[in-house]
Amino acid sequence: MANLTLNINNKEYRLDADPQMPLLWAIRDLAGLKGTKYGCGVAQCGACVVHMDSEAVRSCVTRVSRAAGKKIVTIEGLSENNNHPVQQAWQQIDVPQCGYCHSGQIMSAAVLLRDNPNPSDADIDDAMAGNICRCGTYLRIRKAIHLAAEMQQKTANG
């Protein structure tokens, strides 16, 4: 039955999916990974961000056919034990309120810190303005990204 294979979090998923189906729904309903969220369906809110070949794509507008053969990482696969520097910083600062948008926020922030280990406030705006948080945790997101950058540098410096 399966018509395509997705590599999600280093695991192969053989799926039977309409090729037009957005990656979001394949991840959630077919692969059963519910950490990636549906928020708007039109690439406006960022709740659905996953990494596809290391870029922070919006899975709600990415057709599953585009994702076949690429490496997908979801929030569940970002780290071994919830310990990516961004996750640790989020925990230390208690960033989430309702928490719904934070899978996407964290996935976006992880790409920022990979490309720019020491981001300024302006860099954070440039990277994170695509992710909406209705609870308004933005100031904590900013603070946590700075903290994650520090933590990442400490780890790098051994």
């Binding site: 690439a43 870029e55 922070a56 919006r58 996935m107 922030a109 720019n116 440039d126 695509g130």
Partner: peptide, 12 residues
Amino acid sequence: VYAMKCANCHQE
């Protein structure tokens, strides 16, 4: 830039 690359939203 970063998490805001054109192709993250704009498909083929």
